[in-house]
Nucleic acid binder design. Sequence first.
RNA 1: GCCCCCAUCGUCUAGUGGUUAGGACAUAUGGUUCUCAGCCAUAGAACACCGGUUCGACUCCGGUUGGGGGUACCA
Length: 489
Amino acid sequence: MPIKTRFAPSPTGFLHVGGLRTALFSYLFARKNGGEFLVRIEDTDQERFVEGGIENILRSLQWAGIQADAGVWLGEKGEVIQKGAAGPYTQSERLGVYKKYVQELLDKGNAYHCFCSKERLDELRSIQEAGKQPTGYDGLCRSLDEKTKANKLEGGESFVIRMKTPREGSTIFTDLVRGKVTFDNSLIEDQVLIKSDSFPTYHFAVVVDDHLMGITHVIRGEEWLPSTPKHILLYQMFGWQIPEFAHLSLLVNEQKQKLSKRHGDVSVEDFKEKGYLAEALVNFIAFLGWNPGDEREIFSLKELEQEFSFDKVSKAAAVFNREKFDWYNREYIRKMSDEALAEACRPYLENAGLVQKAEFLTHAVGLVKDRLVRLSDAPEMMGFLFAEELAYESELLIWKKSTRDDTAKILKKLHVFLQSIGENDWTKETLEIKVGEWIRENEYGTGDVLWPMRVALSGAKNSPGPYEMAGVLGKTRTLQLIQTGHKRL
RNA sequence: GCCCCCAUCGUCUAGUGGUUAGGACAUAUGGUUCUCAGCCAUAGAACACCGGUUCGACUCCGGUUGGGGGUACCA
């Protein structure tokens, strides 16, 4: 049987980096094994539905390069479309399917109507907790006689449908990342299958859909581990083949707490906006719980597709470490061509009101490429290259070992000397040679010349080298800035 | 409370009975001296604890502690 995996998010907000990792591992496992990967939307909770949530999730997946073979995805114009033989792939469009299958369970005696009120359930729980007993539904409505049931139904009483779980024995399965896991059946409660609004619960819909869609490997977050026995019981009631399960450890923050929206910066979209590259995010996130077994750390999505395997997936929760992520981002930024990086930075620069021609932008980006961590740092890092006038204190021009008078003199002489250099020689390399010679001939201190030159050109104490900046800035602009610097003294 | 999962440097991890416990990020120091970054070099930094099995445990077993998840008509 060909391998088939899926990613099944709920449209209750934005795609979380943890969710992206789950999607990625599902996708990688399918690709590695020549299988199929599909995306299904689990929107069975009408109350938690967020407008635009589906689009956002799909956009994030697309940005990360995770392509589905079937299911729900984004069309050319960003509209939500569905493709595949086992559709629809949105659970709210499959209500008839769940109705049919829950009837089968009802007929077989594996499920029953329950009329218990919220109040009774709450009370039951507090009694159980107070008595240090395991919590869970006590099965009161299991034994309802047909007549009472018919009366209640006729009277329009609100009800749910629950599965009838066995009271003895245990449910055991072998998880692909965790190994053998055992649950005592007596602790598995009679889970609600169909809610009173006639929508299925996650537990029911996921089993029906995974079976109908031919999912062979259920890959999901660790939070689902405790409910897996319920799902297995359901497969058994239907007489369906039980899929393989792989429960991925959670992603936690630096305080070892579950990553959450409250702590900020967890949605994929946030990271994208902050100027992180998709390749860097994918690479970083893949290594949170997976590694190739050797010392390589840079992997493209394609390479991951070739090497991914569950026996290299670790069981422990992983901290989403920003420093390491920054390092990955820097690595990927440096691998980009100046042209591509310039285009990637352009939106951030334009947003800051810094608009420039492509050619100049490419040169400018080349200047700061090695120091750029995020694309969003571009405006601050290169702003001085585009500014009309540089705002800095005149004291900044004076090197720590120099004086105001000497600096003024040197700047003036430098201006004169630079004028003598032809436009054709105005490159970083030639400037370095010529100015270097000039410094030695006149017996100036290197810092006495280069420091004020740097400040005059950048207006800042931290910046790229003066020769590089002069090369990018061009002769006219460079002379102008040095003159301005001189005047300030 | 009850159930389940997890446990190697600060962080991500390698390691599957015998290793000087390896790498990367981060940190510190030095070098590259006009600054910062970068780059190069060097350093410090870990097997949670207690029992057991064994000639020998980071590795296997049990317990303790700690952390996480679940315990909904949410997913």
